[in-house]
Amino acid sequence: MLGYALRRIAGIVPVLLILITVSFFVIRLAPGGPFAAGRALSGRAREELERVYGLDRPLSVQYGHYLLALAHGDLGPSYSMRDDTVAGLIGAGLPVSATLGAAALVLAVLSGVPLGVRAALRRGGALDRFLAAFAALTLALPSFVTGPLLALAFGLWLRWLPVAGWQPDTPRDLILPAVTLALPLSASIARLMRASLLEVLNASYIRTARARGLGRARVLWHHALRPALVPVVSYLGPAATYLVTGSLVVETVFQLPGTGRYLVEGAIDRDYTLVMGMVLVYGTLTLLANLAADLLHAWLDPRVRHEPL
């Protein structure tokens, strides 16, 4: 298991390097630049700025400098918010975004898995039918609709939770955004869990377990649940990607000072270093999420960890 994990972790580094390289050149292929589009800068001033930031040098030199700085942990200055460094901006926003994403993921798993198990065990029952309707609804409604609806219900009418905004160290502020982000994820996980448990319960090893007189509970917990979790775990990779893109909308709706907005703003402003910083951070997060999913998969299924890579 340890060997498998080490081999997988070693595989992340080259992927990140490719990601950095491709983003570095692609963003520079887009027309315009950080100091070009629609800004009242004289030709002289722009040339001066580009010289200061090294943007007048050949691309290969810029790329080399960027990698060198990156190796020292320096993400560079932001071109559009000139008082801040990229590291500073991300460092301020990431705790909010990461807490939001993690809370949503935990909520989705803790609600989706039991819901799916229950629906599979009582197939066709009330909860099973509720799950079908719940899944259809939450997957169809975008979060910029569910978010305001939840804020309206719990914030304005019931007055249980704040409508929007965020102060440090007030977890209450994160409840509504996290629920908004978690709802469709929870529905997907519940449906995956239901379908996969139903399939596993038909497997011949479940019949063997029952034929040993192990009893319903033991058959479910010790024999059926782990293999049934495999599709759910495989879904965690795509789920992480969803959390990254979804946080952008939810942070805007609930006015959270997260990092989601930098993805869009940075790209529009051609703030090369900010975009690169965001790509690096979210790329790493996504790769780590996929790695975690694969490691969990290997833990769930011994056949995976014995495979030659």
């Binding site: 090893y205 479940i206 019949r207 063997t208 034929a211 299924d301």
Partner: peptide, 11 residues
């Protein structure tokens, strides 16, 4: 049971 390949719990 028949088919010992699938009749034991894999994990």
């Amino acid at each position: 049971f028949q088919d010992p390949m699938t009749s034991l719990t894999p994990h």
